[in-house]
Design a protein around this nucleic acid. Structure first.
Length: 850
RNA sequence: GGGGCUAUAGCUCAGUUGGCUAGAGCGCAGCAUUCACAUUGCUGAGGCCCAUGGUUCGAGUCCAUGUAGCCCCACCA
């Protein structure tokens, strides 16, 4: 098969991927060192976005590189049921059909969402294939697969039995639109313009009044105290008395608590324990009653005066303000900016509401995690995230794992119908009612927070505790994830991993930043700046996309999606393609018996290859992928294409060219898997797929002296080109005197330097090629030389500056004494070199001036 | 209030443990053209590496302070 004139990725990608899949080469191979990556499972509810393209690119590079090193690589894919997220996506679809979740029973809804996700599975799996991810599909895991669910149950059971799980009535962050609670970190806080109202609460004994400040006057209906700071002398005589709560006929006490800041507002705070987390804490300390005045539907309850019942929070606020104003209790109101929690999906204001939920007593787990992190059991990239995670774990609060939605893993606990305090663990979650010891138990209707089950991902996917995979591949070699998941996911994987298995879940964590649009703005559907990776693949190819998002990538920092980088990647692919095409033309494939360096360029390229390989390994081993890409990009484009191939046109060393191509293909393969395999297949290289090649290609070492000889010629060519361009000359001959290297390379010089001839002998008039430091002249006319004089003068002054700098450095006794000897020697050599070059320049100038 | 990150060419960004002449891609200017590649080749212009101070023989790199921008956490009666 012949290579086409240019690389058209769409003609090859699908075929190449199915070839890989058929050969089951993605399953762990051989008996090398185990190397394991588990994919952070994308949500099973939609399309992959640019962030996924980056994630898969980075992970796939790791996986493919380690296969090349001969490691036994497991690269495990999966999908996340993404509880709440998916239910929201599904509900939006229902909305388009004019329906809502309330039109279905729980079971129906669950089944519908399940088939919705099932339908989408093929879609997003095929997108992963298009990205070229070399995942082992045989290990594909869904977060609702039986073993994963069983694992979540087992972990819950262990915690339940060890007393780490408790049920408590706490204030939870509740979205009244979606009807579910959220963990603290899921609440989206935004600055909002509100008002601060001041309300007069008369003392019951008529000895005065106390004015409280509030942003939420409607909650006054649920006040059960007024608090002041114990050190605040303005109020010290009121503590212990009671006030009459306006609009109600209740009397509530005035208490003293450190929580109150005397400098804020009036220094007096109304306490609404059922609707404010701080008030909740105060109430606990003072044993105050809790009075719920806002229900789960977001409306005022029946416990408020008739006039306010069933009003929404907003309506209630207006009504209360109106009423207290009318009755003369409102003393003041002013604009006030404060931050308000919102549902991150629908924007509804989050209400803190009292609800019985399951909580994990997280401190003990966090402390263990902290210990291991501080011992350095996990390498963080970037390292700054370690500090951030430590701070988070130090201040962590108990974790609410109950969610009032349908789509998720049911919490396997049942409540005694006759004794609400009696909860038992049972895995028969497909039943609503079970009987144990003649007692009737009803299942908790709630499901787990998605993150509870996905926190077990590193070991549940590997079949903890018995499966061989777990024994071979745990802890994971690396967890690659977005930086936004450090707290919700990474932290919990570490805590649960240690808790369940006794070991950290992964040895290294590589965090990538978010991909933004070209201006650095977050991609979002509503702004309309989202770029679909699948469209980019169609336009430029999968490898080009990968190279584009990877070039200049650095862990931890956000990166814009830059189209020109993708185009650069596409061009690079084409470059490599054409290198292969050149070699294909020159050779009869299949004769690679002896690889032998014949010419100086052969020796030179072998030396550069060797050096590149060493640096490549170093960079790849330290996860510095974008630098490794940069390295091979310039090796291939600058050294191989621009110099070696060009030099080869006279005297192609076919075996070496082929071997070199193989070497390059293997190094590039993690970065451009489709392209490299396509070339490999088309040229019928051995072994039958590039993936089976489990090592970097070894080539003979070039001879140093011969390599240096080529470098001299190369420098000469560059200098000559530069002079010819600068003087705008053409039809120039090059003369040399007693220079065997120039004689040896006369043909190449003629071809590449753009001169019409290379001859022995000094021209009558002409200019020396000063930089080359050889007896070489160009027969450039006097007029043209004059154009060059300006440039020569610039060069002279630059070189003089450099010489001065070197001289000063070497005159500094501290430098001689303290800098490393090699460095000092290097400086000395540079000084000599600089003097020589300057001398050449000055001589030339002198010649011109006469 | 606590913590973190970023500041380098017109744009987007690299720059490992400090090492001397700071790099790339794109863009820009000029030249070239059937011979692997216009998804090309060649030549070139473009930078007080945010500011100030410090450590050091030597600072884009380390330390301190400041300025600007971004992010996370907590709180906001």
């Amino acid at each position: 098969m012949k290579l086409a004139k240019s690389y058209q990725p769409e003609d090859y990608e699908a075929g190449i991927y199915s070839l890989w899949e058929k050969s089951s080469i993605f399953t762990p191979q051989g008996s090398g060192e185990p190397y394991s990556i588990v994919v952070p499972p994308p949500n099973a509810n939609g399309n992959l976005h640019m962030g996924h393209a980056l994630t898969f690119a980075i992970e796939d590079i790791m996986a493919r590189y380690h296969r090349i090193k001969g490691d036994r690589v497991l690269f495990l894919p999966g999908a996340d049921h993404a509880g709440f997220e998916t239910q929201v996506v599904y509900e939006r679809q229902l909305e388009k059909e004019g329906k809502s979740r309330f039109d279905y029973s729980r079971e129906e809804l669950y089944r519908n969402v399940y088939s919705f996700v099932e339908q989408n599975k093929d879609n997003f799996q095929s997108q992963i294939r298009k990205l070229g991810a070399s995942v082992d599909w045989g290990h594909y895991t869904f977060t609702l697969d039986d073993p994963i669910v069983k694992r979540a149950f087992a972990t819950f059971k262990k915690m339940f039995e060890e007393g780490l799980i408790y049920r408590g009535e706490r204030l939870v962050n509740f979205c009244t639109f979606h009807g579910t609670a959220f963990a603290d970190i899921e609440v989206d806080y935004k600055e909002e313009q509100g008002k601060l109202w001041q309300i007069r609460y008369p003392l019951t004994d008529s000895s005065g009044e106390i004015v409280v400040a509030t942003t939420r006057p409607e909650t006054m209906l649920g006040d059960t105290a007024v608090a002041v700071n114990p050190k605040d002398s303005r109020y010290s005589n009121m503590v212990g008395k009671t006030v009459k709560l306006p609009l109600t006929n209740r009397e509530i006490p005035v208490i003293a608590d450190e929580y109150v800041d005397p400098k804020f507002g009036t220094g007096a705070v109304k306490i609404t324990p059922a609707h404010d987390p701080n008030d909740y804490d105060v109430a606990k300390r003072h044993d105050l009653p809790f009075m719920t005045v806002i229900g789960f539907d977001g409306k005022l309850t029946h416990d408020v005066p008739v006039a306010f019942r069933s009003l929404t929070v907003q309506e209630g606020r207006a009504a209360v303000v109106n009423e207290i104003e009318k009755q003369g209790f409102l003393t003041n109101s002013e604009d006030y900016t404060h931050s308000v929690g919102h549902c991150y999906k629908c924007g509804t204001i989050i209400e803190p509401l009292l609800k019985e939920q399951w909580f994990i007593d997280i401190k003990p787990l966090a402390n263990k995690a902290l210990e291991r992190i501080r011992e350095g059991d996990i390498t963080f990239m970037p390292s700054s995230k370690q500090t951030q995670l430590e701070r988070y774990l130090e201040n962590i609060k108990d974790w609410n794992i109950s969610r009032q939605i349908v789509w998720g893993i049911p919490i396997p606990v049942f409540q005694n119908e006759d004794d609400p305090g009696d909860w038992i663990y049972d895995e028969r979650v497909d039943q609503e009612i079970i009987t144990v010891n003649n007692k009737t138990y009803r299942r908790d209707p709630d499901v787990f927070d998605t993150w509870f089950s996905s926190s077990s991902w590193p070991y549940s996917t590997l079949g903890y505790p018995d499966r061989q995979d777990f024994k071979d591949f745990y802890p994971l070699s690396v967890m690659e994830s977005g930086i936004d998941l450090v707290m919700p996911w990474i932290s919990r994987m570490i805590m649960l991993g240690i808790y369940v298995t006794g070991n950290v879940p992964f040895k290294r964590i590589y965090l990538h930043g978010m991909i933004t649009d070209e201006r650095g703005k977050k991609m979002s559907k509503s702004v309309g700046n989202v770029i679909d990776p699948m469209e980019i693949i169609e336009l430029y190819g999968s490898d080009a996309l990968r190279l584009g998002v990877l070039s200049g990538h650095t862990p931890g920092s956000n990166q814009p999606y830059v189209q020109s980088k993708v185009i650069g990647g596409r061009n690079f692919c084409n470059k490599l393609w054409n290198i292969a095409r050149f070699i294909e033309d020159k050779s009869t494939i299949g004769t690679m018996d002896q690889i032998e360096a014949i010419t100086d360029p052969d020796h030179w390229i072998l030396q550069v290859y060797q050096l590149t390989k060493i640096n490549y390994l170093k960079l790849m081993d330290s996860y510095r992928f974008s630098e490794a890409y940069d390295l091979i990009y310039h090796f291939i484009w600058d050294d191989v294409a621009d110099w070696y191939i060009e030099s080869s046109k006279n005297q192609p060393n076919i075996n070496l060219l082929l071997a070199l191509l193989k070497g390059i293909l293997v190094m590039v393969h993690p970065f451009a898997p489709f392209l490299t395999e396509t070339i490999w297949q088309t040229l019928n290289l051995e072994p039958n797929t590039i993936l089976a090649n489990q090592q970097l290609i070894e080539l003979p070492q070039g001879d140093h002296a011969k390599s240096e000889r080529f470098k001299i010629a190369k420098n000469l060519i560059t200098s000559v080109r530069s002079i010819i361009k600068a003087t705008g000359s053409s039809g120039i001959k090059l003369y040399y005197h007693e220079e065997p290297i120039v004689e040896l390379y006369s043909t190449l010089i003629k071809q590449l330097a753009g001169v019409i001839g290379v001859e022995e002998g000094e021209p009558e008039h002409g200019m020396a090629v000063t930089e080359a430091n050889l007896n070489v002249w160009l027969d450039i006319s006097k007029e043209q030389i004059d154009k060059y004089l300006v440039r020569l003068n610039e060069k002279i002054s630059i070189e003089q500056g450099r010489l001065k700098q070197l001289q000063a450095r070497l005159d500094n006794p501290s430098y001689i004494a303290q800098a490393p000897e090699e460095l000092v020697n290097e400086s000395r050599d540079q000084l000599i070199e600089s003097e020589q070059i300057l001398e050449n320049y000055l001589q030339e100038k002198f010649r011109f001036s006469n």
